[in-house]
Computed example of a mutant assay.
Amino acid sequence: MPSIFSKIVAGDIPSHKIAETDDFLAFLDVFPCAVGHTLVIPKKEIDYLFDLDDELYTGLMQFAKQIEPAISKAVPCKRVGVAVIGLEVPHAHVHLIPMNSMSDMNFNNKLKLSQEQLAETAARIKSFL
């Protein structure tokens, strides 16, 4: 059964896309820890990050690295934190989260943002790519 991320890749579920290549996709988390919380995924559905082959793993991290400067310019923060949890969706993914303090990466405190707020944030991040 396809993961929710595979459905986003296929266009079956709408998302606030930040960037996309043939192999990778970056989009806003709809249940973010902080404004600008972005998910970076391989389009190929593989459950566990460390099951990615070396080329796909390296490509995913390089893609995430390309997205980070746009997030840090669009969302004022001290730095963009990186997290890999991997339990919530069975599809390898990396969280890029703007941080001003450690509490900004608290996955138990999710923000409730409107679709308009998410769209504005996505547009702001994309403007710096």
Rank of each mutant, 00 (worst) to 15 (best):
Val40Pro: 02
Thr58Trp: 04
Asp47Thr: 14
Leu52Tyr: 00
Ile67Ser: 01
Pro76Glu: 09
Ile67Phe: 10
Phe63Gly: 03
Glu55Arg: 06
Thr58His: 08
Val80Phe: 04
Ala83Cys: 11
Gly59Ile: 02
Cys33Trp: 00
Phe50Ala: 13
Phe50Gly: 15
Ser72Arg: 06
Asp29Thr: 10
Tyr48Ala: 10
Asp53Val: 00
Thr58Gly: 04
Glu45Trp: 03
Gln66Leu: 12
Tyr48Lys: 12
His37Lys: 11
Glu68Asn: 06
Lys65Leu: 13
Gly86Met: 09
Ser72Ile: 09
Tyr48Met: 14
Lys44Asn: 02
Gln66Gly: 12
Glu68Ala: 03
Glu45Lys: 02
Pro32Leu: 05
Val80Leu: 03
Met61Asp: 03
Phe31Pro: 08
Phe31Lys: 15
Val84Phe: 11
Leu49Tyr: 04
Gly59Asp: 02
Lys44Ile: 10
Pro42Arg: 01
Phe50Met: 15
Ala34Thr: 11
Met61Val: 02
Ala74Tyr: 06
Ala83Ser: 15
Pro76Lys: 15
Ser72Met: 10
His37Met: 10
His37Arg: 07
Val84His: 13
Glu68Thr: 06
Asp47Leu: 14
Leu52Val: 01
Ile85Tyr: 15
Ala83Val: 13
Ser72Tyr: 02
Asp54Val: 11
Val40Ser: 15
Gln62Pro: 06
Ala83His: 07
Glu55Cys: 10
Gly86Gln: 04
Ile71His: 06
Phe63Tyr: 01
Val82Thr: 10
Ala70Thr: 05
Asp29Ser: 14
Leu56Gly: 07
Val35Gly: 04
Pro76Val: 13
Ile71Pro: 00
Ser72Asp: 06
Lys73Gln: 09
Pro32Lys: 06
Asp47Ser: 15
Leu56Trp: 03
Thr58Cys: 11
Lys78Glu: 09
Lys44Trp: 05
Met61Trp: 04
Lys78Met: 09
Met61Ile: 01
